[in-house]
């Protein structure tokens, strides 16, 4: 028997895995070009370009042609707000959690202190506990805290502390830190402390050593951690759902709201754009990382 012949089982399971991974994406992309407004069945592409004309729920003609739903999307103010919120939250929380998470990883690697094991374990617990529990916990914490502060400082009206962009950002930072720390620690594991000593021996103080030697050599880990934090923040639904407030809707929250009403192909167009952006980001980060080291 030829040892290199693949068993049919392997082939079938491979095909199935790829089918279930990517078929939804393909369908999602396809339906973004659907001419049917209700988007239940695929009724064909929008073929004509010109002033919009809708016949019995089907778009016949559009100024944007096949990209009708993308144009609708671009005109949608709510989507733009949600996208802006999502990116703001993602950037701020990624940068903050990457800095804190990296420093935590370095501290855990370098120093031994009392309660070290405890702080390690307690750092990783948020990764394993269900997100919904975290979400409810954060919500309860914020509302209690805000009530207390609003009462004691007798704040009223606009100056009252409420849920909103700020609370979402804080909670995203909180849940991203353990992931960053985990990834950076893996990178630090094989770190040769002697190169820091070499740097100091050659005349660099602790701060220069950190910037010129320590950080560059763990940079791939830091970048991976940041990417992970960024994607986690971009597509987080559960925790955002509990901590968001009026005017601070994110894309996942907005899409969820749309789905409860009608599923127009706009949702698909939005998702298609979103997936494309994420793919590009992941692609470039991978490239960047394989170039380093």
């Amino acid at each position: 028997m030829n040892p290199h012949r693949r068993s049919p089982l392997v082939i079938v399971s491979t095909v199935l895995v790829y089918f279930f991974l990517y078929a939804p994406v393909v369908v999602l992309f396809l339906f973004a070009f659907n001419s049917s407004k209700t988007n239940v069945l695929f009724e064909g592409f929008i073929t004509q370009v010109g002033p919009t004309e809708i016949v019995s729920g089907n778009v016949i003609r559009s100024p944007c042609g096949a990209f009708h739903w993308f144009c609708e999307l671009a005109r949608n103010v709510e989507v733009r707000n949600a996208a802006r919120n999502t990116l703001t939250i993602a950037f701020v929380s990624t940068i903050t959690s990457t800095i804190i998470g990296t420093l935590a990883a370095i501290a855990l690697q370098r120093y031994s202190f009392r309660l070290k094991t405890f702080s390690e374990v307690s750092l990783y617990i948020p990764i394993v506990i269900p997100e919904i529990v975290m979400g409810i916990g954060i919500l309860v914490l914020f509302s209690q805290l805000f009530t207390l502060l609003n009462n004691t400082l007798s704040l009223s009206g606009d100056s009252q502390l409420t849920l909103g962009l700020g609370t979402v950002i804080v909670s995203h930072i909180a849940f991203s830190i353990p992931f960053v720390t985990l990834v950076v620690r893996a990178r630090l594991h094989g770190f040769d402390k002697a190169i820091e000593e070499a740097s100091m021996d050659l005349g660099a103080n602790e701060i220069i050593t950190f910037w010129r030697v320590t950080l560059p050599s763990i940079m791939p880990g830091v970048l991976s951690g940041a990417l992970l934090a960024f994607t986690l923040s971009l597509d987080d639904f559960v925790i955002t759902f509990f901590t968001t407030g009026p005017g601070a809707s994110t894309l996942p929250i907005y899409v969820y709201g749309l789905l409860r009403r009608i599923v127009t192909p706009q949702v698909n167009a939005l998702s298609a754009v979103w997936i494309s952006i994420v793919l590009v980001v992941v692609f470039f980060t991978q490239r960047l990382q394989s170039r380093q080291m």
């Binding site: 040769d192 002697a194 190169i195 000593e197 070499a198 740097s199 100091m200 021996d201 050659l202 005349g203 660099a204 103080n205 030697v213 560059p216 050599s217 940079m219 380093q292 080291m293």
Partner: peptide, 20 residues
């Protein structure tokens, strides 16, 4: 006095070259 203020330099057993 810290290492960076001493007029000595070291060749490490593991060489400790900066990999990047």
């Amino acid at each position: 006095r810290p290492p960076y203020l001493r007029p000595v330099n070291t060749v490490f057993q593991s060489y400790a070259l900066f990999p990047h």
